[in-house]
C-alpha cells in the first residue's frame, strides 16, 4: 500500500496472506471457516497448488504468534469470465482451505454486501502487505489506508479509452494524499462500514502503476459476483477431514507388538 499506515492486531481480523513458495504474493479475506475470497490473477500463472499456503491472524509476516493459523489449499475456483472480456476482468477467486479456520478475536469473517448496496458516502478502507513504494520496497507489516470511492465515469476519464472499465469494476484511491494499492495488495479486501458492520465491497485487482495519482486502484466489485460466490460456497462440500485411523489388521499387529514388549519388560 502506498501511503498506508501501520495497523494493529484484531482491527482487520478477516485479512489473509496468501503465500507462494514461502513468499507473500497476494491478500485475501475470510468468508467462512473454509473459504477465502481473493483475486483470480493471484493464481493465473500455472503454478502448483501445493506450493501455495495461507496465513490468518497475522500482521507482521516475519512473526507468527499464538493467534496465527496456517492453511494448505484444497482447491481454487476461478471465476468463469476471468480474462474473458478484459485483461483483468472477472478477477475473483474462491480458495478452499484444507482444514477449518478457527475463529477468535484475531480471526473473523468479513460480511458480503447486499446486491443493491448504495455505495455513496461510505467510509472505505483497504489493507495489505503490498509494495510501499513504486521502487518495489515491501514491508512485513500489514498496512491500512482509507480510500474514497471514485465515481465510475470519473475513473474511466482518468484511465482513458485504452484501459476500459467493466461494470463489474469499481475504483478507489486518495489522489490528494497519494494513497493507493500496489503490487502485492492484489486479492486484499476493500471494506466499508455500514451500520456498525464491515462489508467487503471490493477485491484489489489492478491499476496503472501505484504512484501516479491520476490512476486510482481498480477493484473487482464484490456485489457483481455475489451469486457466483454464494453458489460455490453453498454447493461445494467441505474438504474431507483426516481422522486418526487404524485398520483392524494393523490394530492386531500393534496389539501383538505391545503385548510382546510388555512381556519383555516383565521378564
Amino acid at each position: 500500500l502506498l501511503g498506508g499506515e501501520l495497523t494493529i492486531d484484531r482491527k482487520w481480523p478477516w485479512q489473509v496472506s496468501i503465500h507462494y513458495a514461502g513468499f507473500h504474493v497476494c491478500g485475501g479475506s475470510i468468508l467462512n471457516a473454509y473459504w477465502v475470497l481473493t483475486a483470480a490473477h493471484c493464481f493465473a500463472r500455472e503454478k502448483r497448488l501445493q506450493t501455495f499456503d495461507m496465513y490468518v491472524g497475522i500482521t507482521n509476516l516475519e512473526v507468527a504468534n499464538k493467534h496465527t493459523q496456517w492453511f494448505e489449499i484444497n482447491q481454487v475456483i476461478i471465476h468463469p469470465t476471468f480474462e474473458m472480456f478484459h485483461p483483468v476482468g472477472g478477477d475473483v477467486a474462491l480458495v478452499q482451505s484444507k482444514s477449518a479456520i478457527v475463529f477468535s478475536d484475531y480471526v473473523l469473517p468479513i460480511c458480503l454486501p447486499s446486491s443493491n448496496l448504495n455505495l455513496s458516502d461510505l467510509s472505505c478502507w483497504t489493507t495489505g502487505w503490498g509494495m510501499v513504494s513504486p521502487q518495489g520496497e515491501t514491508g512485513k507489516d500489514l498496512l491500512e489506508a482509507q480510500l474514497p470511492l471514485i465515481p465510475k465515469f470519473q475513473c474511466q476519464l482518468l484511465y482513458g479509452l485504452t484501459s476500459y472499465l467493466l461494470p463489474e469494476m469499481l475504483c478507489a484511491g486518495d489522489i490528494k494524499n497519494m494513497k493507493n494499492v500496489c503490487e502485492g495488495d492484489s486479492g486484499s479486501p476493500l471494506v466499508c462500514k455500514v451500520n456498525q458492520t464491515w462489508l467487503q465491497i471490493g477485491i484489489v485487482s489492478w491499476g496503472r502503476g501505484c504512484a501516479q495519482p491520476l490512476y486510482p486502484g481498480v477493484f473487482a466489485n464484490v456485489s457483481y459476483f455475489l451469486n457466483w460466490i454464494r453458489y460455490n460456497m453453498e454447493t461445494i462440500p467441505d474438504p474431507p477431514q483426516l481422522t486418526p485411523f487404524v485398520s483392524s489388521s494393523l490394530r492386531a499387529t500393534v496389539s501383538s507388538f505391545v503385548t510382546i514388549m510388555g512381556s519383555l519388560l516383565v521378564l
Binding site: T7, K11, W14, A33, L108, C111, W198
Partner: peptide, 27 residues
C-alpha cells in the same frame, strides 16, 4: 475462541460467528 458473536447476521456466510464485527475498533 470468541463466544460473543450470535448467529444473527443476515450477510454472514459463517455458521458460528458474526461477520464484519472486529473485537477491536480503530479510532
Amino acid at each position: 475462541v470468541s463466544h460473543r458473536h450470535p448467529k444473527s447476521q443476515p450477510n454472514s456466510l459463517s455458521s458460528d460467528v458474526a461477520c464484519g464485527q472486529p473485537a477491536l475498533h480503530g479510532k
